[in-house]
Computed example of a mutant assay.
Amino acid sequence: MTIHSPGALLASRLPLVLVLAFLAGCSGDSKPAAEPKAAVAPRPALTVRLTTPQTLDWPQSLPANGNVVAWQEAVIGPEIANYRITEIRVQVGDTVKKGQVLARIADDTVASEQAEAKAAVAELEASAAEAKANAERARDLREKGFYSAQLNTQYQTALHTAQARLAAGQARLQAASLRLGKTAVLAPDDGVISARSATVGSLTQSGQELFRLIRGGRLEWRAEVPSADLARVRPGMPATLTSPAGQPVTGKVRAVAPSVDPQTRNGLVYVDLPPTAAVRAGMFARGEFELGRSPAVTLPQTAVVLREGFAYLFRLEGEDRVVQTKVTLGRRNGERVEVLSGLPAGVRVVESGAGFLADGDAVKVAAQ
Rank of each mutant, 00 (worst) to 15 (best):
V271I: 13
A223T: 00
A106N: 15
A128R: 08
V192Y: 06
A162R: 09
V323K: 15
D140V: 11
L62P: 09
A195F: 13
L50G: 10
G355H: 12
G246A: 02
L166I: 00
P53A: 13
L313Y: 01
K98R: 13
P274Q: 05
P63E: 10
A231L: 02
A281N: 00
K97L: 05
L10R: 15
Q174F: 01
V192R: 14
I85E: 01
F356W: 08
A128E: 07
R84K: 11
G355K: 08
M1D: 07
D190G: 09
L151E: 15
G251I: 09
G292T: 07
I3M: 07
A281Q: 03
K97M: 03
V339H: 00
A162L: 09
P274T: 07
I105E: 11
G93D: 04
I76D: 07
L213C: 04
V305P: 04
W71M: 11
P238K: 04
K37W: 06
G334N: 09
V200S: 12
A176V: 03
E123L: 15
E73I: 04
D320T: 05
R179Q: 15
D107L: 03
A198R: 14
Y155C: 02
S177K: 14
V75T: 13
Q60C: 03
D94Y: 01
S127C: 00
P6G: 06
A187V: 07
R196A: 14
R84G: 00
E290Q: 12
G99K: 02
L230M: 05
D190A: 14
P295G: 04
K364L: 13
A126D: 07
V253Q: 12
A255Q: 14
A164H: 11
S27E: 06
G181N: 13
A115V: 02
R293C: 00
I76V: 11
P63H: 06
A131R: 11
L329S: 06
S341K: 03
F211Y: 13
S5Y: 06
A129W: 02
P6T: 08
P300M: 06
I214G: 00
A231D: 03
V90D: 03
G66M: 09
W58T: 11
F314A: 04
R172M: 09
A195K: 14
A168I: 06
A45H: 09
A120C: 01
A106R: 11
A158G: 08
R165V: 03
V101D: 12
E116M: 14
P36C: 12
R280T: 09
A41C: 08
G145Q: 09
R139A: 15
L23S: 07
N266T: 15
A131Y: 11
E338N: 06
G66S: 13
A11N: 10
V101Q: 05
Q324L: 10
A367P: 05
L329H: 07
L18F: 12
L124A: 14
M1E: 05
G282K: 04
W221K: 03
L343A: 02
S27G: 11
S112N: 15
L159Q: 15
G236K: 06
V233T: 04
S112P: 00
S227K: 06
G342D: 05
V347M: 03
G169E: 08
A358Y: 07
A228I: 02
A255F: 12
P275V: 08
W221Y: 04
W221H: 01
T51R: 09
